[in-house]
Design a protein around this nucleic acid. Structure first.
Lengths: 245, 245
DNA sequence: TAGGCTGTTATTGGATCCAATAATCTCCCT
DNA sequence: AGGGAGATTATTGGATCCAATAACAGCCTA
């Protein structure tokens, strides 16, 4: 096979070695180094990444569960072609799941601790847009803020199934988003990002006034709005971000 | 460890050997043979099932992803305690996901082929209740019919992410349902089953008249109604049913 | 010449072996 | 006697080996 872009193997330092395999594979798929339909053989991939076949097997199984690769009978695996409707579908799913979380939250009301965390989170978001322009660092800040808000909603919902379902679902749009990002260096889409922030505000408002219907609706609309600005999700997966602690 | 109820190992004939491991483990967890908190060591489990450690490892990873077991650091795995709120949560998730599927279907309308399949499916359902009583065989028929209906909705929705999210999510309520079933031999809950069937009819009606809101609402209500009669799901997982062909 | 059958080969899945690691137990020190 | 540190042991994770299997090509036959 002799895949070219395998200098990633140098990245596998720190952390358990096995985790790097799945992260590397995700990135290679997202970046297009491994293109859809192209075979991924365990042996070739293993020696390309300088590791045994075992972690590769594990990783491929996991990626198959995530829907990023598919098994080609006894001829290995291949990245699934991620179509626009795939991304749309995954975002739709994200919408209803997070919508459910928001609904639950609105139905039972926020605890004071949660209220504080949300307030702090949204304040961080507001701060990003305070000066009217965005630089590169602000994009990172926005991403962290955005992830924090969504995580907060899901965690606080008190229904662990939601988070589980999301973790499987999300890698797909994240991957495609990363691919998109690479070809066109992300312009600072101030308007899009600010709209997203305002949608967060709307969601929280509905939760605060304990209006489940409105909360769910706002959350869904927020998800669908993300369709227009998918490339903003530069990072790769929840796991890769939250892996440090 | 010397687990007692391991005569299951005799069941692993036919099919690839590895699949039997995960299915056996699911059943043992659901039946309570492996109780929550009780350690599942790879080695002990492997020799108990008469197989190598490798399939056990694979199976435990998968079960962890499904949320049926949790990892105890370097001390193996253990079945997660499935609480009532866990089941409620999973069913809630099922509701919004299948609700989304129904909404999509209602929004775009049924093709003639789909219309025929749905009609045939519901006719099968109606036939079950025609004679006014249920025997044991009718319960099996109802289960097949019920699964067929739900599968049809999800498949026809045209959003594969929904099915993926569901397949992870569903094992939890299925497992708990199985556990429930074992202690109280299922009475023929005619009323509950018939109500479920009528909810199917309502969902399909909303889809036919292309009313997305109503379709989603009906589907959600159907899911929640299942909470009252969870024990009706005697079978174990989608996989175990659809494994034969 | 086309289709099917068979032998070969490549590749996954399972088993076993070894290393890294974390938990537990014991012993010593305070 | 209690706590902490170290050694020991049990257990997972990774590597390697072997078997089963499916794909492929070549040949033979109709």
């Amino acid at each position: 096979m002799e895949n070219e872009g395998l200098s990633l193997s140098q990245e596998r330092r720190r952390l358990k070695p096995g985790r790097h395999v799945i992260i590397s594979l995700r990135r290679m798929i997202a970046e297009g180094t491994l293109r859809p339909g192209e075979r991924i053989a365990e042996i070739a991939t293993a020696e390309a990444l300088g590791v045994s076949r075992m972690p590769v097997r594990t990783a491929l199984r996991a990626l198959e569960a995530e829907g990023l690769v598919e098994k080609l009978g006894a001829r290995g695996y291949a990245p699934r072609a991620i179509s626009a409707t795939d991304v749309t579908g995954a975002i739709e799913v994200r919408g209803v799941l997070e919508g459910l979380a928001a609904r639950r939250l609105a139905a039972r009301g926020l605890t004071v601790a949660e209220e504080a965390r949300f307030a702090q989170c949204l304040a961080e978001g507001a701060a990003i847009f305070a000066k009217g322009t965005l630089d590169r660092g602000d994009l990172d800040r926005f991403h962290d803020y955005n992830l924090a808000f969504h995580t907060l909603i899901v965690e606080a919902s008190g229904n662990p199934s939601i988070g589980r379902a999301l973790s499987r679902n999300d890698s797909l749009p994240f991957a495609s988003a990363t691919a998109l990002t690479l070809e066109q260096e992300p312009p600072t889409e101030f308007a899009h990002l600010q709209a997203a922030h305002e949608q967060h505000v709307a969601v929280l408002a509905a939760i605060r006034r304990m209006d489940p219907e409105a909360a769910e609706r706002a959350m869904r609309e927020h998800a669908l709005a993300a369709l227009g600005s998918e490339r903003l999700f530069r990072r790769f997966s929840r796991e890769e971000i939250t892996v440090s602690p």
